[in-house]
Design a protein around this nucleic acid. Structure first.
Lengths: 232, 232
DNA sequence: GGAGCCATTATGTATATACATAATGGCATT
DNA sequence: AATGCCATTATGTATATACATAATGGCTCC
């Protein structure tokens, strides 16, 4: 008996059938009920298995219409985004950060627009250099909204980075992230101990609590850095 | 009565409590049973809600030990990676691709290593330029393993791109992806209609069917291109 | 007091059942 | 033939129940 089966092994078997072409792209696969019959389990168990396959983009499911193998396949990748300190330590290196600059300023137009702020909003601007084994790793430029974060003025960001402080103390409800490449400027080159004009990987991230923008950050990675993830 | 409630609205409420600090990071939250009581629903419904929160990294759950708000928060982002044609069309542009080069070659050491191949393996090397409204968008360099894909020699990649052909005809079981930045070379600059030395966003992706490597590809994006995603 | 054992307990999974919801495809009406 | 309506049906969700599994924390025994 295969009572030891679980939704996981059913999912594996179904994935196999999709991948090896038993079920062709666009093809309608058997109903949950039929599969439940085949695997001698409850429909809920098959449902659990199929839901996962739909989540990764392998199946298209619609009520009444049934489940079919995706024809216009787009795969979903899940990236795990850690605190920078943990990212460094995960690579087996010693972490340290240096507070480069911290001041209150009127947000420039570009930032105001990104954060949906009024014209006269004052923001806290913080620049931090993150080091792995004393080698510059990421240069961080961050804009913080004191309206949402009144307590930031009391805080000393030389002992704990804004990155870590935020992530531990302020949760967000939504955000957007973008990945780009940029040529590093002379001043950035000096900070990152790299050559001017080198190509650096850039992450721009803006996070919100409902309607209010918390922070917007630009993470400029050391040239040569690659961000990796698994597909499945 | 709140019979109209679903696991989704319960999840939203629980997320709210985490985000607004009702439950602090590291804090143990009520058991599924208690929450089921509170929301007047079955434990399975609460379980469904909590599972999602754990999947996005907001909760740590362990049997017997209960669920607690994550202390070392890392958030998971899901990127949707489309066929290039769809990506272009989604931006409202007209898609076209040009086959630049296609030949059989012994894989260079670097590629062999990445694809876990023997020294004398012959691969099909295909270069494609993808255009959006006749403007170069992505330059694709791809290595294909004919051992897994015997039918590729019969195929004319000028009418359908390797990208699209693969995604429609060959599924993979696993893969890895990496994001970087690179300075574009003179020849790449010419193809992409950009300046030599500009910074371009690069995706490297290698996909497998179980133990066998299918393909490895490098997607060099037009300078200025940004890949966007939502956090939630 | 320390090691090892065990009952307890919270989550994980499976089941049968029930009803909701959304396409489908056919039927009837015009 | 086009339109609109309706029964059918596959998936989506909720429920009560049951048992599995993995930490916990206390207890016993030495």
């Amino acid at each position: 008996m295969t009572t030891s089966s679980s939704w996981q092994s059913i999912q594996d078997e179904l994935r196999r059938r999709i991948v090896d072409g038993t079920w062709q792209p666009g093809e309608l696969i058997p109903t949950e009920e039929r599969l439940a019959e085949e695997f001698q389990c409850a429909r809920a168990t098959v449902n659990r298995a199929l839901r996962g396959l739909a989540d990764t983009g392998l199946l298209d499911r619609r009520r009444r219409a049934g489940s079919r193998v995706a024809t216009e396949p787009s795969r979903y990748t899940t990236l795990k985004i850690d605190i920078i300190r943990l990212e460094v330590e995960r690579r087996g290196a010693h972490y340290r950060h240096v507070l480069i600059e911290q001041r209150s300023v009127l947000a420039p137009q570009r930032v105001r627009h990104r954060m949906h702020l009024a014209d006269d909003t004052e923001l806290l601007f913080v620049c931090t250099l993150h080091l792995a084994d004393e080698t510059p790793f990421i240069y961080e430029e961050r804009w913080l909204n004191p309206q949402v974060l009144p307590e930031i003025y009391d805080f000393d960001f030389s002992s704990i980075s804004t990155n870590e402080w935020l992530v531990r103390n302020v949760m967000f409800t939504r955000g957007d992230i973008s990945f780009t490449a940029a040529k590093i400027t002379p001043s950035e080159a000096e900070l990152l101990d790299a050559e001017t004009g080198e190509a650096a990987f850039v992450i721009d991230r803006t996070t919100w609590q409902e309607k209010q923008c918390i922070t917007s950050v630009r993470l400029l990675h050391r040239p040569g850095f690659a961000m990796r993830a698994e597909l499945s």
